[in-house]
Nucleic acid binder design. Structure first.
Lengths: 206, 206
DNA sequence: TAGATTGTTAATCGATTAACAATC
DNA sequence: TAGATTGTTAATCGATTAACAATC
């Protein structure tokens, strides 16, 4: 157990394990094994056990893993037992879809503020929230102690908005703009670029 | 140069290189180097050169890479010089955003058919296309020889729709449902799960 | 007890990096 | 020519897998 120096690639798999365990729990299942998870996820059972071992001992020899317990441990490790307030920047079609997406809440995230720079959009209501001007971003982020942001804006604005977010105290950015943004080393960025993911697959097509 | 057995992890970086080169080209730049790409992308210059070397020799010693040439070679390798027709399944908020997303066309993808099973949505117009019943999926996919699909549907329907897509001849699926789907080994799947990506980052937050 | 499955060690495999000859 | 940068080799680093003692 070396919880501190777990490889990032292992951390990235924890949400996948958590997702599967949550699903199994909802199915009413109580016990699973690294082998069953392996079959569901296409990850070898040895790797699954090794991944867990970075964070502790969660199973019982001969039996396997208690689903609810392991699920709760993964939530604790990922720090998603709590709810994280999230700032959403960009209220175009994608921003609209994200603001209304029901998949964030059960995973520990609540969009508490939506920003755009288009006067026609500012003031609109989304999922019980008002779209605010980008000018208010820093104030609101500090006031609500928001650490996590989602950027759903054009590439042309991405670096500038990222700078504003970082200056406001944001520490994690989910970036939907198909461009590489520069941030200080203490800020984490994850990119979502569906076209790039499609291109990854067309390489293999005949 | 061993174009055939390029590791998948290398293939996955090609769209990122292509994205950067396209951007530099639009900036009016003509030449770049592995070192400049390294600084832009946060990938070591040695790795960039090694990645390219799997597919050929694209640069000139002492000079670097001709941006337009390298960009076109990467397009060729990824098979995105052509346009791929894409089927979109699911016309909720996310499906709507994807149907209107301008980022696919310049990367080689055109959504040519949109499907939903909600009678209230069927018949609606999106970006010059009509929303069709899922019942027509197999026919249209075969007729238009569609190989690539995007699933923007609830998890509960994902496996069933994936089966339909595979049976219709789809070979690549971009899956937005936060669940693992099973497909034959000759079909490729890429998952997009924003909540999982956020959880990956909260692990590191203080 | 017999059977099953964990957690861990050591071996293997694969990816990244460093270094440099080739050469533009 | 002198300086710069590629493409590639070998070394290093890190991740995955196989195997098994421990033990439920």
């Amino acid at each position: 157990m070396d919880s501190n120096q777990a490889p990032d690639i292992v951390v990235g798999r924890l949400p996948i394990y958590l997702r599967a365990l949550t699903f199994m729990g909802e199915e009413g299942r109580e016990i699973t094994s690294s082998q069953e998870l392996s079959e569901r996820l296409g990850i070898s059972s040895a790797q699954i056990r090794k991944d867990f071992s970075h964070f502790g001992e969660f199973g019982k020899q001969g039996t396997g893993y208690e689903i609810a317990y392991l699920r709760d441990q993964l939530k604790r490790i990922l720090q998603v037992e709590r709810m994280w307030p999230v700032a959403l920047v960009g209220y175009g079609d994608l921003g609209h879809a994200l603001a209304n997406y029901g998949g964030f809440a059960p995973k520990g995230f609540e969009i508490v503020a939506v920003f755009d720079n288009d006067p026609a959009k500012i003031g609109q209501q989304v999922a019980g929230k008002e779209v605010l001007s980008i000018a208010e971003l820093a104030t609101i982020v500090r006031q609500k102690k928001i650490k996590v942001a989602i950027m759903a804006i054009p590439s042309s604005a991405a670096q500038q908005v990222a700078n504003m977010l970082v200056d406001s105290g944001i520490q994690a950015i989910l970036n939907y703009a198909p461009i590489n943004i520069s941030v200080p080393h203490n800020v984490r960025v994850q990119d979502i670029d569906p076209a790039a993911r499609l291109q990854h697959m067309t390489f293999y097509l005949k």
